[in-house]
Amino acid sequence: MATPTIDAPRSGKIDVKYNRRRGGKGNFEMVAWLFMRLSGVVLVVLIFGHLFVNLMVGDGIHAIDFGFVAGKWASPFWQIWDLLMLWLAMLHGTNGVRTIINDYAERNATRMTLKTVLYIATVVIIVLGTLVIFTFDPCPAGAVTDLPSFCTAK
């Protein structure tokens, strides 16, 4: 059976000499390339830890409810862990999807539209997630169910 091959994006369509832009863009692409590798290594640790603590320990996914999250975010350790994970994962993922859009969306207008949607989604999710982590109240007034055990001490 012949193995199918998948050509590099846009190969054969644009002469190589037009693929390289000279100057003007600074070293943003190099910084982005480096960021992917550095954030990737950190994310392996953060996400493996996240999955282990939330899915493997105790009752696994069955233990997850409001009280579980409240218990974790009562400690600055998990607040910082989740905050780092949020920012690094969102920036890493956004840059990855940006690369894919640049590779496959060939019309200028399509590329701009997709990237605009992407960047709006990124900003909304990062701002929302950050606010949630820092404005979170583990014992909200009026709530009765699924509260962490330490709320009753109030």
Binding site: D65, F66, G67, V69, A70, L86, M90, I125, L128, G129, L131, V132, T135, F136, P140, A143, T145, D146, L147
Partner: peptide, 16 residues
């Protein structure tokens, strides 16, 4: 996942 986790800010019932 960020959106569903954000429900902890709405109410314990909504999140759970």
């Amino acid at each position: 996942h960020v959106l569903d986790t954000s429900l902890v800010r709405v109410s314990p019932e909504a999140y759970t």
